[in-house]
Simulated scan of single mutants.
Amino acid sequence: MEINPLDAIEATESAPKAAKLSWLNPAVAITVALLATFMGICKVKDDNIVQAMQQAQADKVDHWAFFQARNIREEIAKSTLVQLRLQALTVPEQHQAAYQAQISVYESLAKDQAQKKEELKVLAEKDQTTYDALNFHDDQFDLSDALIAIAISLLAVASLTQLGWLYALSLVPSAFGVLMGLSGLAGWRIHPDALIRLLS
């Protein structure tokens, strides 16, 4: 068996490089494990937020539907009230009391429906406010997921290519992804509006 001296030289030259980057694969593995764990925690919170958003949206639709129903009832009561008042002008004196009693009933009904309609409007607007507040945090978690996914992709390439600078580069989206995830978990008001609008 012949030994090629060039092979020995190449092996000797590549040995320091391999030893120098021996930290890379363990660092990538630990970083990916930490990011995946953090993503899992954020996913649980984000799913709960999405469920709350769906509930707020359903409540808003229900309240606006009831608002419209109350509005229709109010309009019908007002229309009936107008008819009763006009008819009261033409009926004999002995029937006036009955007409006045019905007029009072429909005045009270119209007033009641108007009041309940305004209460429903306030509830529907509150539902929209709740939805917007939840959506703010949902955006934070979405951005966190995207940034951490980019970081994990860069980490995979860094591990394959054994490029230390690529590992360092992957820490940038990792840091921003963790920041956005922590913002969603802790309720911080960090929200890159321009980026969110671009991705929406």
Rank of each mutant, 00 (worst) to 15 (best):
A77P: 02
F38V: 13
A110C: 09
D138T: 00
S174F: 00
Y99H: 13
V178E: 05
S153A: 09
S22D: 09
A98H: 04
G181R: 11
T161W: 03
Q96E: 10
L195A: 14
I190K: 07
F136Q: 08
T12C: 02
Q83D: 11
K117I: 06
I190A: 10
S153T: 06
K17R: 14
S200W: 00
S104R: 06
D139V: 05
K60E: 04
W23D: 06
Q55S: 11
T90L: 02
L185D: 14
K111D: 08
F141S: 08
D46G: 06
V32C: 01
M180H: 01
N4P: 00
W23G: 07
V61E: 09
L163C: 04
A65L: 07
V50S: 12
W23H: 10
T31A: 15
Q113Y: 15
I196D: 01
T12S: 04
I72T: 14
T161Y: 04
H137T: 14
N48D: 15
G184A: 13
Q115M: 07
D138L: 07
T12Y: 01
Y99D: 10
A158V: 06
F136D: 13
L120K: 09
K17I: 14
E74G: 15
L199W: 07
D46K: 13
L6A: 09
S144N: 11
V157P: 00
D46M: 12
K43D: 10
M39K: 11
A149G: 03
E119I: 02
V122L: 10
D145W: 04
V44K: 12
A149V: 01
G164T: 08
K17F: 15
W64A: 09
E93K: 13
G181A: 11
N4Y: 03
L166S: 05
V32I: 06
D46W: 12
